[in-house]
Amino acid sequence: MTALIRAENLGKTFGATGGWFGGGSDQVRAVDGVTFDVDAGETLALVGESGCGKSTLGRLLLRLIDPTDGTIRFEGQDVTRLSSAEMRMMRQRMQIIFQDPFGSLSPRRTIGQIIGEPLEIFGLTRGRRARRDRVAELLQQVGLPPAYMDRLPRQFSGGQRQRVGIARAIAVNPAFIVADEPVSALDVSIQAQIINLMQDLQRDAGFSYLFIAHDLAVVRHIADRVAVMYLGRIVEVGPKRLIYDAPQHPYTQALLSAAPEPEVDTVSRRIILKGDVPSPSNIPPGCSFHTRCPIAQEVCRRDRPPLAQVAPGQLAACHFARPNPIPTGNAA
């Protein structure tokens, strides 16, 4: 399978180039040497605690933030080397759906103008009438009446606004869409509608999602593969089934054990992690998870484990990677 987009050793350090004053001491390593790829037509979910760098990683891929190091190959082309004009043209191929449905729509533009803007930029429709027709079509695709075209965002609910945001993203027929927690700001009752809409659109158009989320139930529904991030690094990545059923990294396992179980009769013991997530401005040496890991050994404090294959298609960064590494004691 050919990768649509491939990140190699991608890293971002904030506060790296301080101005006249300071700099140096307050460097935050938000994303640290991340390598992964997204195949054409698939959904890769990126999960992790808040602050682990998953949103930053999504923005790096689209060069909404410029990476400090590493490369991004999109359809074989190194987008980190594109000039800003070339990058603007590339944006027709890669789009984003934002988390905040309220802030991501310009408050003084009608939703027709908002959705029509990318069409106008890339000259996808000729003339005003053609653009309105296309916007009407897009609104229909995302389940909004085209008659709402001339209304302002403030008249819509969160779920409706998120549909507008989705219509804007798919307007240019992109190959790759970063969905940055697209449903976490919505009511639970609306979340399923939006997720199903996103899946329907993907089925029809065949684009790929990088689906950033912290809700594991949502991820289980939409993802083909799952990548787990901790402190700016991917600690485990693999097919959804393997990640959920046979997690090989203790952090993945702890994360999964913290998610509520829908089945009433399963008695699962939660793995409670000790302490807080270390600050990304002061990442521990060795395995960055060793400060909270229940099975950490001396070697974990010393050597950083590489992301290595543990099962077909499944990679984990742990010296002691094996299926369900932490014994939970539930006799299943």
Partner: peptide
């Protein structure tokens, strides 16, 4: 800082147009 400015960058709008369309009216 508003997400809609980032959204305008993400759809490939040129900086002068971002300023005219999305900054000045607001």
């Amino acid at each position: 800082q508003e997400p809609y400015i980032e959204a305008a960058v993400a759809v490939g709008l040129r900086t002068p147009m971002i300023i005219l369309r999305h900054v000045v009216p607001n």
